[in-house]
Design a protein around this nucleic acid. Sequence first.
DNA 1: TCCCATTATTCCGTTGAACGGAACGACCTC
DNA 2: GAGGTCGTTCCGTTCAACGGAATAATGGGA
Lengths: 277, 277
Amino acid sequence: MSEATRAPVARALSVLEAMNAAHSLHLGDIAARAGLPKSSAVRLLDQLIEAGYVEKLSRSAGYRLTSRVQRLSWGFRLSDAVVEAAEPLMRDFTKEYRWPLFIGVVDGDQMIVRYGTVAESPVAIDPLVYEAPSPFLLGALGQAYLAFCPDWERKLIVARLGRSRRSIDQPAKNPEEFEKILRGIRRRGYALTSGGLRQMKRGMPKRASDARQRVTGMAVPVMRGDRVLACLSLRYMHAVISEQEVATTHLEPLRELAREVERTTRQMTTAGSGKRE
Amino acid sequence: MSEATRAPVARALSVLEAMNAAHSLHLGDIAARAGLPKSSAVRLLDQLIEAGYVEKLSRSAGYRLTSRVQRLSWGFRLSDAVVEAAEPLMRDFTKEYRWPLFIGVVDGDQMIVRYGTVAESPVAIDPLVYEAPSPFLLGALGQAYLAFCPDWERKLIVARLGRSRRSIDQPAKNPEEFEKILRGIRRRGYALTSGGLRQMKRGMPKRASDARQRVTGMAVPVMRGDRVLACLSLRYMHAVISEQEVATTHLEPLRELAREVERTTRQMTTAGSGKRE
DNA sequence: TCCCATTATTCCGTTGAACGGAACGACCTC
DNA sequence: GAGGTCGTTCCGTTCAACGGAATAATGGGA
């Protein structure tokens, strides 16, 4: 067995990838693209056929993917790609500037924090809670989103929040005041947490509660065209550094980070989707 | 080994499917959804991580898909799903009505025949050539497409064909005359082959050349909203049956077939993409 | 029509990877 | 700090993966 190092699972997946690179392939092509001996390719293709991901047209026409392959990735969305692209870049940022970063995306009618660089920051503020919802209107993430998203999308979200019963969503019921706030955000280029003391999170270690502080988020958008893919928020403590100071020293690096995330996401989602064959 | 019957490849793919059904899963959930013992799920997840399709967040946050899963299906398009949905239905149709059917989709600037029920038809007319291009303007498939597609799309295609040097694309240079033809197609609900004797196809058996006949296609669209996903063409011989007769006896079943393909395609492409978790 | 080059398919002995029950360890809750 | 839940690791058994080589089918050309 010459290639005993690579597991059959990985080989089968590379067969699928090879087939995505060009439809209706002949065995020889598939085997060559996947880098496998033909007899191995046949065996793997048989398994994929058995499992329903591939079908065989005829000897001469070769093989073809079936719609079942979509089940392997339909749950992966653009917002997941953004988060994936952002994570290593966010870690680098926090190692350099110390303050922790968080990234949030819209999910339905709320803003969800998908990742944070708590582990990299020497300043322990919040524990990292994956998938934690963030208040749309009071949080920096949500405000940045609303300030920079297209008009039609903002109208949809605000209308939905306006029907909400939660007090936290009430600002949506005062549209002109709220629009004024958003104009300010667009002018400055960043959003800030409004509302005061952050509420304690469940599961927070006892020691940290002693460090209960005024914590503010400064958020900027990650764009794609006119859409907001996600927002990045830098969380800092009032008592240590002022808004003015943060804006002067950290805002431009934060914006550069957002641009870098935009570039990386674009690469991730366009690579390989060009011409086929 | 209790479940030795299912190959590791199939099990790994069911893990991926399970993960698509809900993001950020814990091991227990994944194992349960995929129907596997936990130790097996771990082993398969390790392989998927090794291959770069999955990443592990933390013990508590569980696992997550990476953008690499998109490589497993990006080559599969909506038009492939239509063809896949149509094939068995087309075979049933030909078994009942004898005449062969063909399905074509647009691919760039040409119409491509993606499947035909030659094997099921007792009337051997053409051999089935997968991926064979069909002339846009003279063939029934292309004419049906142009007649029923949205205006903006038709303008794009006709403009592109108008720049063509091939004589076969010349009708595009007489727009008002051509538009009149299309209006007729929309009124009748079907397109017919224009141009006379079909040219011989490469690879056609010698015997069949004796049966060189006037062959006509009668094509109807498969729609999704205002878009044409594909066109179905019934190919019959002038010498045996007249257009009038075909329209009377076969047109309505052909239209019903198109509607059934529309329904099946919709199911295939929306199933599982509803709510998650 | 026959022949040859090309490509797909099948076979088979060897071997290593997959398997899962069970023991272990970490974490959270009460 | 005790109990329970969930993730992790271990290990001997067994079966499926492996690919070179022989065979079969195909299609194109003379």
